[in-house]
Nucleic acid binder design. Structure first.
Lengths: 210, 210, 210, 210
DNA sequence: AATGAATGAGCGTTCATTCAT
DNA sequence: AATGAATGAACGCTCATTCAT
């Protein structure tokens, strides 16, 4: 009887199942190697090697590296964006808007640090930063939200473009440093970024001991 | 025997001269192609092609692409850092420190936008940011300067790491957007960044017309 | 139970029908792509793509590209050969034999020029000539007919091998040029080839105006 | 002193020597595999495999299969054409013109039968004929020569296009059959073709025993 | 019998690097 | 020291073919 009430999940035949599995395997592999080696340095063969599938199989699912990347983006967007937008739309105060954004970003980054965070390849002193799909998805609509918040009067009528830039810049860089620390203190990062954003240098928490 | 009679041309000076020239030629070529195609996409062949030298010659001067990059960095550091450090060491106020840093950075970026600024390759929605040598050189010692400024009491005793991160993040991102505009207004960018840094969102200049 | 009530569709006939249909579909597709892209350049995938069938299905009917080709040949042979043989067997004079052969060949070529005639791929200056099934079928038994005609005394006792060669060579090349012309004049081609064959250069119609 | 009179052959350094050798090696290899497998079926890797060189080396000399082919053509043209043209220009009679052309063609084919003659791949019953460079070179200017001969009054004013076609067709096909014989009798082939061309079927030598 | 995804060999090509000249 | 051809690994990609469904 229970069977009848529970909506039947779209039963996949074995074929569809493996197909879905493979697609996901490629996406997972891609996320890993993108994060490890950077998008530019990653080859399609790196991705398939990581999956254990045959080289030709890749092309049954994606036409190019770009396409996998885009798929990762779409994936991430689906999962990340709605919450972020919702949060920012519902923000009653400047601080809620700012803190909420940083909070969800830093928490997201902290959780998925292994494979998800932005890439930083240091070949020697070279820093290459690649925005992984999740990141892009996260900030993509920030500017729109900021503009709409300005219209609502929630945020002051400043240059929305530069404000977004500051937001993103601070989030990126602080998250990056946060992850490099032994025991990342997400709350501290949120606090710092929020205060910096809201009231600048002077409002930022003073370090008593270090 | 005939060989012995031919007066030996003053080879040594010239040799060294050419040697230095070649080295510089490679560096110049590398700077151009790095900026044009991005570090990751640049091949050694691209660099030597640009110089007109033979491919083997490259290896007389550098072992790898990385090494050229490092050399460019060192070059840039020599030219860029002293002024920056000097400026920050001599800063009497917080604002001088902050504004001075942004000012020299944004002006530098604006002047050299052609070949020197950071690379942004967009393959579709993919943002890859590569810090060119000059950029890195510019920010490399920022953290030290910040720490020293904190010690001097010029800056509040905040988390120097995160403060640097905010600095760099804001600078990067705003510079980036500035360059995308039709007529980049460097002063406006400096003003925005400085105020953001010093007093946050609320202090940032309000846009009256857009 | 419900399954049992549904009237069983007359499956058997249909099965065989589909089977025959598929076979024919593959043959048709092959003829088209062979003619379009040339035998050598055609891949099995090209053929199945053209049919809309699944790739695996191909192998239920043919083992290889060669085999499809052979089947096309057999097909054509069935349709083309009998008439040709008949014509040549019934020939009362040398001229009937020769003219009849050229006539049926040139007319056939002219009618099916779209997809059926021989392929000529020019990659640059390279001429690759591929005898399509129909063509081969047409000439395949020519030599036998010639030999038999010699025995009958219809044709002089010349080297049958070389005679066939001349026949084929003239037919091929003239047909080829005929098709390249704006308004192919089949009768003129027949006339030229027949005269060339029968009495050589001197007998060939003189061009008065061009 | 002798040195001064004998024109110094362009002394090649060791480098130039190997370079020339390699180029020639590739050309030779290409000629062989083109002849063996047909142009269409030949891959670049087939060619380099035949040379023993590394795969990348091919690209130091040629950009593509087409380019090698063209180079072979140019080679052949240089060697074959002048004699042919000369012969045909100097022809005093129809027969000289016709016989000379066949003669040089059949002799050429007979000599180089290994690697040089036209390709005939029989995969099963499939005949693919590929005109190798030498062949093309040989016949390329035939039509011009024919037209000029017609103007000179050496040949009757027939359709030059079709006449060329007949020439080429007969030459191709007879040469082909000639080569298939145990002991190719070049003179017989020349005789047959010439007579066929000049006076058709009736003039062709009768076979007494076979 | 039909399907179509998986496979891995092989293609054309580019590249970093070596080394005889 | 400069040269630039040779090298062979690796790339992106396509293909014939197999086989579980």
């Amino acid at each position: 009887m229970a069977d009848m009430q529970i909506p039947v999940p779209p039963k996949l035949g074995k074929r569809e199942q493996t197909k879905a599995n493979n697609r996901q395997a490629i996406l997972d592999a891609a996320r890993i190697v993108f994060a490890e080696m950077g998008y530019g340095e990653t080859t399609i063969r790196d991705i398939i090697r990581q999956t254990g599938l045959a080289s030709g199989t890749f092309y049954n699912y994606f036409k190019s590296k770009e396409e996998v990347f885009q798929a990762l983006m779409d994936d991430a967007a689906l999962r990340v964006r709605p919450a972020l937008r919702d949060l920012r739309e519902k923000a009653k105060t400047e601080e809620q808007f700012v803190r909420g954004t940083f909070e969800s970003y830093f928490r997201f980054i902290a959780e998925d640090r292994q494979t998800q965070h932005m890439v930083r390849r240091n070949t020697g002193a070279i820093r290459v930063r690649m925005d992984t799909p999740q990141i892009i998805a996260g900030f993509d609509e920030l500017q729109q939200d900021i503009e709409s918040a300005i219209e609502r009067g929630l945020l002051p009528a400043v240059d929305a473009d530069y404000l977004t830039a500051s937001f993103v810049g601070i989030a990126f860089e602080i998250a990056d440093r946060m992850l490099e620390r032994e025991n990342p203190d997400v709350d501290a990062a949120i606090e710092f970024a929020t205060n910096m954003m809201l009231a600048g240098l002077k409002a930022v928490p003073v370090v008593t001991d270090s």
